[in-house]
Each structure stands twice: as structure tokens, then as C-alpha cells.
């Protein structure tokens, strides 16, 4: 059982075709998750009655269970729920016609929402309270103070966390292969089993993930440098 080095390159080219799908599976949940996280943060910040404990429970549960559970619960649970609703409304819609990727995106968005809620919260709490008071004192409305003063600073402080979650979600997409998505790991698995060269295929997939992670970290480093230009801490 030797290693077929040239095959790694063959597998690499084949698996690389799955990069767009993988990136889509990572980016879409983060975007949706950002809005979910924002909503959760507002609910928790203003202690909205009724929703407050739901938001807390949501964040705690999704951070406390493996993401594979979220995918499976959504994948098996939502069709069941929808079928019941459609049956009671007498609509003949087959939930089995919904592509699996929709469930994956939905589940990962909920996962991202929980993690981003915590990131946004820590970002906001990193902005000094006086900033908000100062904005109010010069006559800004709460909305203006939030969008012009609070969020830009909170976002800048959250960049390292956002980088971590971006890389984390890139890696998280690999479990989508368990519900037969043809993303990087899924494609690697297909290439591996059709050529019976498992090690080579997964080496190729590993290199691609590694490369993508390094690129994400590089981009965030550039962004951070630019953003920090205006908000240097310390004494110098």
C-alpha cells in the first residue's frame, strides 16, 4: 500500500471543482447567522419580554451541541413538521422535493447565529459605555448612535473572532458530506472510493482546506490592519 504521489495532483484538480460549493456552504450561513445573531443580541440587550429566555436557550443549546446534530435534526425534523402543516392545509407539496442543501444551509445558519450572537455581544461590550453617552449628548438618536458609533467599533473589535468563525465554518462544511453533499470532503470521498486511493484524495482535500484557511487568515489580517489604523490603543 504505497502512496501514489502523482495521483494527489489528479485528485487535487478534481476536488478543487468543489471549492465554490464549499465556500457557498460557509458564507451563506455566516451572512444569515449574522442577522440572526444581531436579532438575538438586540433581544438580549433590551431584555425583550418572552423572547429573552428563548434567545438565551437558543444560543446555549446550539453552542452546546455538535453541529452535526443541528444538520440532522433539521434534515429529519423540518420535513416532518412541514408535511404535517401541509397535510392539515390540504396542500399537496412533497417535502422530499426540497433539495438537501436547503436543510444544510438552514441548519448551519442557525449554528452560525448562535456563535455570532456571542461574538457580537462581546464586540459590543468591548466598546466603552461613554461612547454611547457621548453620542446621545451630541443629539444622536439611539439608532444613529448604534449604526454610526457603536457598531463600527464593535465590528473592528470582533475581527479576530470573525476570522476564527469563518475558518471554523469552512471546516464545518466538511460534515455536510454526511448528508451526501458534494463539497470538498464529499468529492474527495467520491474520488477516493472510485479510484480506491483514499489517502491521496484526502491529502489533496487537506491541502485545499489548508490553503483556503491561510487565505482567509491573510485577508482578515489585511482588513484588521486597515481598521486598526484609526483605533490604535496604547500610548504610542
Amino acid at each position: 500500500m504505497g502512496i501514489d504521489i502523482p495521483f494527489i495532483w489528479v485528485a487535487f484538480k478534481e476536488i478543487a471543482k468543489a471549492i465554490p460549493l464549499t465556500l457557498m456552504l460557509a458564507i451563506v450561513p455566516i451572512i444569515f447567522g449574522f442577522f440572526i445573531g444581531l436579532a438575538v443580541t438586540l433581544i438580549r440587550e433590551y431584555r425583550v419580554k418572552g423572547l429573552y429566555s428563548i434567545a438565551n436557550g437558543y444560543v446555549s443549546f446550539f453552542r452546546g451541541t455538535p453541529a452535526i446534530m443541528h444538520i440532522m435534526l433539521i434534515y429529519f425534523g423540518i420535513p416532518l413538521l412541514l408535511d404535517r402543516i401541509f397535510a392539515s392545509l390540504n396542500i399537496s407539496f412533497q417535502t422530499s422535493s426540497i433539495p438537501i442543501i436547503v436543510f444544510v444551509l438552514f441548519a448551519l445558519s442557525l449554528t452560525a447565529g448562535a456563535y455570532l450572537a456571542e461574538i457580537i455581544r462581546s464586540g459590543i461590550s468591548s466598546v466603552a459605555k461613554g461612547q454611547m453617552e457621548a453620542a446621545h449628548s451630541i443629539g444622536m438618536s439611539t439608532y444613529q448612535a448604534m449604526t454610526r458609533i457603536l457598531f463600527p467599533q464593535a465590528l473592528a473589535a470582533s475581527i479576530p473572532n470573525l476570522t476564527n468563525i469563518s475558518v471554523g465554518f469552512l471546516h464545518l462544511t466538511s460534515i455536510a458530506f454526511l448528508v451526501s453533499q458534494k463539497e470538498l470532503t464529499g468529492t474527495a470521498n467520491i474520488v477516493a472510493s472510485s479510484n480506491l486511493k483514499f489517502l491521496e484524495a484526502f491529502i489533496a482535500a487537506g491541502i485545499i482546506y489548508w490553503g483556503l484557511s491561510i487565505i482567509i487568515e491573510g485577508i482578515s489580517h489585511l482588513i484588521e490592519k486597515r481598521v486598526r489604523e484609526y483605533s490604535k490603543g496604547g500610548v504610542a
Binding site: S174, I175, F202, G206, W210, I214
Partner: peptide
């Protein structure tokens, strides 16, 4: 490398 690859790929490797 470990921080740049998913655990599932590491498992398979």
C-alpha cells in the same frame, strides 16, 4: 496544518 483542516479530514488522513 491542524488549525487549517477540518477534524474529519484529519481523521481520514
Amino acid at each position: 496544518f491542524i488549525r487549517g483542516t477540518p477534524i474529519i479530514i484529519q481523521l481520514f488522513l
